[in-house]
């Protein structure tokens, strides 16, 4: 292609005329098919090195810190850990979290009566998890979030809250990556609260995010 700079910001492109072979199209079609057939033959003789997987039956193993669909964790008594402090929605760069706070006269001072995440708006950055002061929101490694209508992209409390003692071991991204110990009550009046060691001080498993050679990914 012949390019001429006409003036700053404007480039004229001279069109190359097609040759006779090009105009026939057939030689180029055959050349394309050769590539396809080449790959087919290569894959037939190297079946074990196939890069594709049969997805619904076979699933790829992702990183332990994969940032997938969110969950809201619960305390032992079955209440959500979330205290509707709006830190996640404040930190959220996509503004996909909508919270409404409520008050329970007897038990909890503040809790979410509405906690909606628009999964289509969410960019899965994990800032909400980092911002949460109560370890209430984690990200699972669940990436299957196919929906058939847009309205279903908004998930609420009934979709997000998990039962107490939900195994958070195989979770995805969560703060203080490592052993999870949570003492005390939300609201932090100090009763029964123990000083928590600084993040990353306890025996965290080796960082799985580090690239470990060829077969990762």
């Amino acid at each position: 292609m012949n390019l001429t700079r006409v003036r700053p910001g404007v480039v004229r492109v001279e069109r190359t005329p097609l040759t006779v072979l090009d105009r026939l199209y057939l030689p180029q079609v055959i050349a394309g098919m050769m590539v396809t057939i080449g790959h087919l033959l290569h894959n037939l003789f190297n079946l074990k090195k196939l890069p594709t997987i049969s997805y619904p039956e076979v699933k790829r193993v992702y990183s332990e810190r994969f940032r997938g669909r969110h969950i809201l964790t619960t305390r032992e008594d079955g209440t959500t850990r979330c205290v509707a402090c709006y830190m996640c929605s404040t930190a959220c760069p996509a503004e996909c979290i909508t919270i409404e706070a409520g008050e329970d006269e007897r038990t909890r001072e503040k809790f979410p009566v509405r906690y909606d995440i628009d999964l289509l708006r969410c960019i899965f950055c994990g800032y909400c998890v980092d911002a949460c002061p109560e370890d209430a929101i984690y990200m699972t490694r669940d990436y299957e979030m196919a929906i058939d209508t847009r309205a279903r992209s908004v998930v609420g409390l009934r979709d997000l809250v998990v039962p107490p003692n939900f195994p958070v071991g195989p979770m995805g991204w969560r703060p203080y990556y490592g052993s999870i110990e949570k003492h005390g009550t939300a609201g932090g009046t100090g009763i029964g609260q123990q000083l928590r060691s600084a993040p990353f001080e306890d025996d965290a498993p080796p960082n799985p995010d580090v690239f470990r050679g060829g077969d990762a990914q």
Partner: peptide
Amino acid sequence: HPLDCPICDKA
């Protein structure tokens, strides 16, 4: 001070 800024309206 309880440091419960997350649920405190004054925060």
